[in-house]
Design a protein around this nucleic acid. Structure first.
Length: 736
DNA sequence: CTGGGGAGGGGGCCC
DNA sequence: CGGGCCCCCTCCCCA
């Protein structure tokens, strides 16, 4: 629906409707529709496209964009994420443009300034908006701008661009003042009075007053201090700081290319080429993005760069965006600065009913302490302002689109409300009734503490409990694998490489107290030890899922945001990880380096070979189980002579050995061999059978030369099975 | 309908 | 902190 069409509908509904009752049009339908759409945009509901403008993100609906802008229409067909040239459209200008698209109104200069939360003199000029409208091919907005400029006697043609006559900034740039002075985090209305005044020309009333036109953006931060965030007014979903500056297009920063090359919609029919002149942006193949909940201010580690499929190794992250002083180092300060996150604090403050806590500068950034948070130390849980989107299911996999009702205006659920069907994210933290001043919350028990030190001390108690707990469990498991089985490797009885006095200890001197794994350096050990913590220190700020490693969490965040920096040269498919791309490229090259030694099947991906091998092994083991039940033999698994069938447990072991051997002998993956062995042991449900299979397995793991850890793991599994449900100790079954 | 293969994607974890 | 690998789940396609 274009706006002229909307106007026609409006007129027909409101005026001509009286004489054209036959049309049976609901008066104001189009207006209501637009209001609904804008309302949904502000909530991120059903938004299926993200527009990246410089370092700001905007969410919107493809249909609406396509209906309003010929240029955007050409883009949204192919992509779920659009990267606009910020030389042509600045974030502040695009915000106005987007507002216009969704409201049909163009804020005047004062409003623009308010919207940008910058000095009045630095607002996006009408000329900038006009230039952007022209660039984006929004005729209605162009006409409106021209009309207004003429009214002010400022209009002149922009042809030739660049210098921008008539007193307005060239090509969408709102002027240096704006760009420099608009740390977008300030773009959120900081005034406690609420959102900026509605367009003065037509002050909305009634339902329109509820329309927030500025809240669907995800704003990147400028250099401004994260801790100085002002809290957006409640009705305004927090502007979200997704800094895209860190990984600007790997070697492909949009700004490095001529506009004609980097902004044109992809041409799927054009063959890939290595020449920059024929560069084509591979079409995004992202699945439709789920409606993102309003995000807290946060800076992402990675942006989605305009892919440069023809440069570098599969789009490995390029250098930091030049000219941005707030590089990656700042990114994590943002992530770490959760206590200062406006939206977090905002929401928490509101939920605590403590307005005084708004706009407060939060200190004591625990998570920002070097080396990550202390044990279990997590800043007070703060969630995105209005969780209209998915809540914290505790499992990111459960992240789903919010339901229709939650996004519709019929459900004016409070911005701080939670989605029905989604667990309250605060509960994921075990939120206590009230933290009061106790901003440092122990996740496992939900107790709050006024200082990080006190929380730290409290957490220590948890840790001791955990260590005791894990120590016993792990010791039992280790004992099972080690105690009576004899040395599977010629290690003189040392179960693992890290055994005292052994070579392993020299190579990997840092041993985990909980599980006996050993590492080359203390950092890795520290990292590993976190896997034993009950408290996962790195929560996803979107869904609340918690992780033991920060990197895993940020990687997870990428999946929320559809950030896929690694693009395939050949097909444009994008991936969140380099490794995925490497795997994927084998599809195009036809390379299938993984071969099944049983059937000769070849596979492009190792995991599929392993899966395939499991099929072989499981089939044999299942057959063996059948044999145990009196069915006889292992269907499809030849015996040593290649003809007959094997009896259990010999059959089980033979299958395990066969499959493991195939992997191991090819030196492709001893771990995979171990995995197969371990899988096989799962079928040894009968302790007696397990015992009978155990020693051959132990010997075989040694023959395979598996890593000590893997071998121990395999053996311990078998040992557990052999120990049986009555918990007999394994040493009774030690081979002689 | 089912099994197997291909492939996308997420999390864990070590380097 | 990113890269790389492993493991798992899942979906889709096809025979």
């Amino acid at each position: 629906m274009t706006f002229p069409e909307a106007d026609i509908l409006l007129k027909s509904g409101e005026c001509a409707g009286q004489t054209m009752l036959d049309t049976m049009e609901a008066p104001g339908h189009s207006r209501q529709l637009l209001l609904q759409l804008n309302n949904q945009r502000t909530k991120g509901f059903l938004c299926d496209v993200i527009i990246v403008v410089q370092n700001a993100l905007f969410r919107a609906h493809k249909n609406v964009l396509a209906a309003s802008s010929a240029y955007l229409k050409s883009l949204v067909v192919h992509d779920n994420l659009l990267n606009l040239d910020h030389d042509m459209v600045s974030p502040a200008v695009f915000r106005l443009v987007l507002d216009f698209i969704y409201t049909g109104r163009l804020a005047d200069g004062a409003e623009a300034a308010a919207a940008a939360a910058v000095a009045p003199g630095a607002e996006p000029s009408l000329g900038a908006v006009l230039a952007a409208a022209s660039y984006l091919q929004i005729p209605d907005l162009v006409a409106l701008c021209k009309k207004r400029l003429k009214r002010h006697g400022k209009y002149c043609h922009l042809r030739g661009g660049g210098s921008g006559g008539g007193g307005y900034a060239p090509y969408g740039r709102p002027g240096r003042g704006l760009r420099a002075a608009t740390p977008v985090i300030q773009a959120c209305y900081s005034s406690p009075a609420g959102p900026p005044p509605p367009p003065s020309s037509e002050p909305p009333s009634g339902p329109e007053a509820a329309v927030n036109t500025h809240c669907a953006e995800l704003y990147a931060s400028g250099p401004g201090p994260a801790t100085a965030l002002c809290i957006p007014e409640r009705r305004c979903s927090p502007l979200c700081g997704l800094d895209l500056s860190k990984k600007s297009p790997p070697g492909s920063a949009a700004s490095e290319r001529p506009l004609s090359e980097r902004e044109l919609p992809p041409r799927p029919d054009s063959p890939p080429s290595a020449g920059p002149a024929t560069y084509k942006e591979p079409p995004l193949t992202l699945p439709p993005l789920p409606p993102l909940p309003p995000l807290p201010f946060q800076k992402l580690e990675e942006a989605i760069p305009p892919p440069d499929p023809f440069r570098g190794s599969g789009g490995s992250p390029g250098p930091e965006h030049p000219g941005r002083p707030d590089g990656p180092s700042l990114l994590y300060r943002w992530m770490k600065h959760e206590p200062g996150l406006g939206s977090y604090g905002d929401e928490l403050g509101r939920e605590r009913g403590s307005p005084s806590e708004r706009c407060e500068e939060r200190g004591g950034d625990v998570a920002a302490s070097p080396g990550g948070p202390p044990l279990g130390l997590v800043p007070p849980p703060r969630y995105p302002g209005s969780l209209d989107g998915p809540g914290a299911g505790g499992d990111g996999d459960d992240y789903k689109s919010s339901s229709e009702e939650t996004g519709s205006s019929e459900d004016p659920s409070p911005p701080g409300g939670h989605l029905e069907g989604y667990p309250c994210p605060h509960l994921a933290y075990g939120e206590p009734e009230s933290f009061g001043d106790n901003l440092y919350v122990c996740i496992p028990c939900g107790k709050g503490f006024p200082s990080s030190e006190q929380l730290n001390a409290h957490v220590e108690a948890h840790v001791e409990e955990e260590e005791a707990l894990y120590g016993r469990a792990e010791a039992a498991e280790v004992a099972a694998g080690a105690a009576g089985l004899g040395p599977p490797f010629g290690g003189g009885g040392d179960k693992v490489a890290g055994a005292p006095g052994g070579l392993g200890e020299l190579l990997r001197p840092y041993r985990c107290a909980s599980c006996d794994k050993s590492y080359k350096d203390p950092a890795t050990l520290r990292q590993h030890e976190k896997t034993h913590w009950l408290t996962r220190p790195y929560p996803c700020t979107i869904c609340g899922k918690k992780f033991t490693q920060r990197g895993t969490m940020t990687r997870h965040m990428r999946s929320h945001l559809g950030l896929k920096p690694f693009a395939c040269d050949a097909c444009g498919m994008r991936f969140t990880r380099q490794y995925r791309l490497t795997e994927h490229m084998r599809i195009h090259s036809g390379e299938k380096p993984y071969e099944c030694q049983v059937c000769g099947g070849k596979f492009a991906q190792q995991r599929n070979l392993i899966s395939h091998m499991k099929m072989h092994a499981v089939g044999g083991a299942a057959g063996a189980a059948g044999a145990l039940a009196g069915l006889g033999g292992i269907p499809g698994v030849p015996g040593p002579d290649g003809k007959g069938k094997l009896d259990f447990p010999e059959g089980v072991f033979a299958v395990a050995r066969l499959t493991a051997e195939q992997l191991s002998l090819k030196q492709q993956d001893k771990a995979a061999a171990a995995e197969l062995l371990a899988q096989t042991t799962h079928f040894l449900h009968d302790p007696k059978v397990a015992l009978e299979s155990l020693y051959p397995l132990a010997k075989f793991t040694a023959e395979l030369g598996l890593s000590p850890d893997k071998a121990a793991e395999v053996l311990s599994q078998g040992a557990h099975l052999a120990a049986g449900p009555d918990g007999r100790t394994i040493d009774r079954f030690s081979p002689t």
